[in-house]
């Protein structure tokens, strides 16, 4: 399995990574090698096997709907790279 440069760029876009050209080339080689190595799974007959998504029980437990204290806004914003009042500040997304 050999990935193209375009495929690497497409996946990087999905993952919101701005890779340098050098990184793109390295990823292309290394991901292709890893995909070759994991291709052995295609030889396993799983036609009658259910997938396992979790090691724990597959059903999330219920709990009572109780109101518990949460962080005050200033504490929740304590690590914000930028903030305005009680909000996280981000670049404008609507012109």
């Amino acid at each position: 399995m050999s990935l193209t440069q375009e495929e690497v760029r497409h996946v990087a876009g999905l993952a919101r990574l701005s890779l340098s050209e050098e990184e793109e080339t390295l990823m292309r080689t290394q991901l292709s090698a890893i995909l070759d190595a994991v291709a052995e799974l295609s030889g396993v007959d799983t036609s009658t096997v259910e997938p396992t998504s979790h090691a724990a029980g597959e059903v999330a437990p219920w709990r009572a709907d109780e109101v518990l204290p949460s962080f005050p806004p200033q504490k929740a914003l304590g690590n914000a790279p930028a903030k305005v009042g009680t909000s996280f500040a981000v670049p404008r997304i609507i012109e």
């Binding site: 701005s18 990184e23 914000a80 790279p81 930028a82 981000v90 997304i93």
Partner: peptide, 21 residues
Amino acid sequence: VRYGLRVDGRNLLAMYGRTRD
């Protein structure tokens, strides 16, 4: 956006990409 490193970009997508790179 909420915590950790932020590297500014010309728009939101560029900020995501540069921060993560």
